[in-house]
């Protein structure tokens, strides 16, 4: 009997060879408005001396509306909100300031220079069936901790290329999982929950401590930079990337502002 299925499947396979094409993955459509939320976590480390880069991130145009989340399957999460929760695709503040932008030194740090990662873990918390923070950074070699504050099952899947992807699960509140540290720089590692399709977070993995995430007012600060000329990249999940070049001579403070275009 097995033979029979196989022959059917086999003949299917014979017929399968045909066209060739490129894979495309569906990107979820974005949409608008501004809802200020809590500021994402600040970067891990900075040394006292050195130069500082500060700036503001803004956007032009109308911010797409963040889709509302239907949490009716998860009463325990739903009850944590007074108004209908939304996704956090575009978190805009007053005067078109843009939060949740990952700003980092893309190049300019001498290749041989090594930075010791902090031993304190970077923590992501699942609370109200959303990730906190939504955009954040971590250093190569730094411990990564995943917490669950919800009495429901979340799985935490990391989609990565330079690092090993993983998919683990936490079915109850109070669980804490520490993952082996990331081994290679990668902007960004995507985190998602497949039980709750709306849960997404983005993690920038860097070899140095020169990164920050813009706050609600769009501001960010990267400090402790040794003298040099740097390419700074600002990454946003919907609006893409922008770069700027900044030269630091000593313990000075330089400005780099970024403006994204909302379509």
């Amino acid at each position: 009997m097995k033979g029979r299925i196989f022959s059917v499947v086999g003949s299917m396979l014979l017929l399968t060879v045909c066209s060739k094409g490129n894979q495309s993955s569906a990107a979820p459509a974005a949409s608008p408005t501004a809802a200020p939320t809590t500021a994402p976590a600040a970067p891990a480390a900075s040394s006292a001396a050195g130069g500082t880069i500060t700036g503001k991130v803004k956007f032009t145009g109308t911010a797409p509306r963040n889709p509302t989340i239907d949490m009716s399957e998860e009463a325990a999460c739903k009850s944590k909100y007074k108004t209908t929760p939304t996704e956090e695709n575009v978190v805009a503040g007053a005067a078109n300031s843009l939060a949740n932008v990952f700003v980092y030194v893309k190049s300019g740090v001498p290749a041989g220079q090594k930075f010791t990662p902090p031993t304190t873990p970077v923590v992501i918390n699942q609370d109200g069936c959303r990730y906190h923070p939504h955009v954040f950074g971590i250093m190569v070699g730094q411990p990564f901790e995943i917490d669950n504050s919800d009495p429901v099952l979340h799985n935490i899947k990391a989609i990565a290329k330079a690092n090993r992807p993983f998919n683990v699960s936490q079915p109850s509140a109070g669980m804490k999982t520490t993952r082996p540290p990331f081994t290679a720089p990668e902007v960004m590692v995507n985190l998602e929950c497949n039980v709750h399709g709306w849960m997404k977070a983005f993690l920038g993995v860097r070899p140095d401590p020169f990164y920050a995430v813009s706050k609600d007012d769009g501001s960010f600060t990267i400090s402790g930079l040794p003298p040099g000329t740097y390419t700074i990249e600002a990454w946003h999940e919907k609006f893409g990337t922008q770069t700027a070049t900044v030269t630091i001579a000593g313990t000075e403070s330089k400005t780099a502002n970024f403006t994204f275009a909302a379509h």
């Binding site: 899947k157 992807p165 998919n167 683990v168 109850s172 669980m175 804490k176 497949n194």
Partner: peptide, 19 residues
């Protein structure tokens, strides 16, 4: 082990955390 690359996660942590 989970089935890596798919939504099916590993449940090993549940043993370590005595769930």
């Amino acid at each position: 082990t989970g089935l890596d690359g798919t939504p099916m996660p590993s449940f090993s942590d549940l043993l370590e955390q005595k769930f």
